[in-house]
C-alpha cells in the first residue's frame, strides 16, 4: 500500500546540505503495525511528514495505493490527507476553543459533510475511544490521556487507511500512554494500518514490525 523508492529529503542549513533521508526504500502493506525508531536527527520525523503528505521528497518516489504522489497539487494532497490519513501528534493539537465533538468533526467539516451526516460518525468515533461521556468537554477540561483519545477519534473519524502517530505517548504518563497504545493497537486489529514514530523502546517494541532509522537510512527492519 505504501511504497517508498530511493526516497531523499535534503535540507539546506546555512551553506551545508543535510540529507535527512538518504535513498530510503520501504514497503508497508495494509493492516501492518510498524514502529519507526531512531535517535533524534535520524530522519524519522521527516519520513513521517512525507508519509503524511505534509512534506515532499527531494528525490525518489512515494506510491500511496499505487498512485504516485509526486505529481499531486496542493489541493489534491489535502484531499488525500483528508480521506486516507489520520494524524496523532505528541502534543495532541486540539483546538482549545472547541469541545471534543467539535474537534472530532473538524475533518468532516473541512470535507463539507452536513451536520446530520456528521453526528453519527462523531458518536461512533467517541464510542471507539471510550469518551462518550466527555463529548461536550473542552480540551482544558480533559486529562492528557483523554485529549489524546479525542485526537485519535478525530484521526479515525474519516475512516482513513493509515494512522500516523508521532510520539503519541510523549506527553503522557506511563499508564495513560499504555492505554493510548492499547487503543491504537485495537484499531490496528480492526484493520487500520498503524505507523508509530517513537524513541521509546517500550512502545516501539510492541509493534510487529520494527524499523530503525539512522542517518536517513534504514538500519534494521525486523518483521
Amino acid at each position: 500500500m505504501i511504497k517508498l523508492e530511493g526516497l531523499c529529503r535534503d535540507f539546506q542549513v546555512g551553506d551545508q546540505v543535510v540529507h535527512a533521508l538518504d535513498h530510503l526504500d520501504l514497503v508497508i502493506r495494509q493492516r501492518e503495525y510498524v514502529s519507526i525508531m531512531g535517535p533524534s536527527g535520524s530522519g524519522k520525523s521527516t519520513l513521517l511528514n512525507i508519509l503524511g503528505l505534509l512534506d515532499s521528497p527531494s528525490a525518489g518516489n512515494y506510491w500511496l495505493d499505487d498512485i504516485s504522489t509526486a505529481s499531486m497539487q496542493d489541493d489534491e494532497l489535502a484531499s488525500v490527507r483528508q480521506k486516507k490519513i489520520g494524524f496523532v501528534f505528541q502534543s495532541f493539537h486540539l483546538v482549545p476553543r472547541m469541545n471534543a465533538v467539535e474537534n472530532i468533526e473538524l475533518p468532516m467539516v473541512l470535507a463539507g459533510l452536513l451536520p446530520a451526516d456528521r453526528r453519527d460518525k462523531v458518536a461512533a468515533a467517541l464510542e471507539r475511544v471510550g469518551l462518550t461521556n466527555r463529548a461536550d468537554h473542552r480540551p482544558d477540561q480533559l486529562s492528557g490521556g483523554e485529549r489524546q483519545r479525542v485526537a485519535i477519534a478525530r484521526a479515525i473519524v474519516m475512516q482513513p487507511m493509515i494512522l500516523l502517530a508521532d510520539e503519541p505517548t510523549g506527553n503522557l504518563d506511563r499508564q495513560s500512554g499504555e492505554e493510548i497504545v492499547d487503543l491504537m493497537e485495537n484499531l490496528n486489529n480492526q484493520g487500520l494500518t498503524l505507523i508509530v514514530v517513537t524513541h521509546d523502546p517500550a512502545i516501539g517494541n510492541r509493534a510487529q514490525r520494527k524499523v530503525r532509522i539512522e542517518d536517513g537510512r534504514i538500519k534494521i527492519d525486523i518483521q
Binding site: 503524511g52 505534509l54 496542493d74 489541493d75 489535502a78 484531499s79 490527507r81 483528508q82 480521506k83 494524524f87 493539537h93 483546538v95 473538524l106 475533518p107 473541512l110 470535507a111 478525530r154 474519516m158
Partner: peptide, 16 residues
C-alpha cells in the same frame, strides 16, 4: 499557527 497547521494536516486547502 498551530491551529492552521492542524487544519492543513486534517486536509484543509489553501482556499479554506
Amino acid at each position: 499557527t498551530r491551529e492552521v497547521g492542524l487544519l492543513k494536516a486534517l486536509g484543509a486547502t489553501h482556499r479554506q
